[in-house]
Amino acid sequence: MITDLGGWLLDWLEAVGRAGIFLAQSIFRFPVRLNESINLLVKQLYSVGVLSLVIVVVSGTFIGMVLALQGYSILAKFGSEEAVGQLLALSLLRELAPVVTALLFAGRAGSSLTAEIGLMKATEQLSSFEMMGVDPLRRVIAPRFIAGVICLPLLSIIFSATGIIGGLVVSVGWLGVHDGAFWSLMQQSVYFDTDIMNGFIKAVCFAIAVTWIAVYQGYECVPTSEGIGKATTRTVVLGSLAILALDFVLTAAMFGDF
């Protein structure tokens, strides 16, 4: 039993070490030629970021609307329904935007990255790069990783903005909250360094974790249809768990000073 546990722990540590070396090699080998690097990065920014915009905007709007409805019904009992703007902004900026955007990102862009890289491996495209003397870590992995790390924090900001607009429509347009109170209470209670920056830092940490898991799972997958399927599932499951666990650690570090 103890031997099995030790063996499992060693395997896990070895996998983490391998993934760490893989990530370091990908990043440090990337900027070979500026023109080429920019072209590769722009292509990936489009496929990882721009193509995730719709799901992020729609989810952000609906979550903002639901939050406004729920918040209004509770706050109205205490006669402080104007504070719904404050509630919306703080919950979105500190927690919901980075976490939900990262979960959506793991499901849409993360799974797509794993499947794409896995298929490149199965169709010998990665071997083909190696045979031509071109490092696949530099050509394939690095631009995808960097694009993921750039896009997720930006998508998280867009999520917050659309969430607040969704909440504004419901609370001011539908439930009759005074718009001046909505904005002024939000302005009074939101701080750039504690709320906006902490949310942004969370999003950057989630971006590194999810994109790292996605590209590593694709690169290391068994190059068969079953292997690619399993790797894609692992990306979504491990990515989501990593986001939630990291969120607890980061929240405790940022806001746990009671």
């Binding site: 490149m120 169709t123 010998e124 495209q125 071997s127 083909s128 045979m131 031509m132 003397g133 071109v134």
Partner: peptide, 19 residues
């Protein structure tokens, strides 16, 4: 090794063209 590979060409069974 990458320099040596520049002097090698390989035709893969699947073609392995970049899709």
């Amino acid at each position: 090794l990458y320099k040596v590979r520049e002097k090698m060409g390989m035709l893969f069974q699947s073609g392995a063209l970049f899709s």
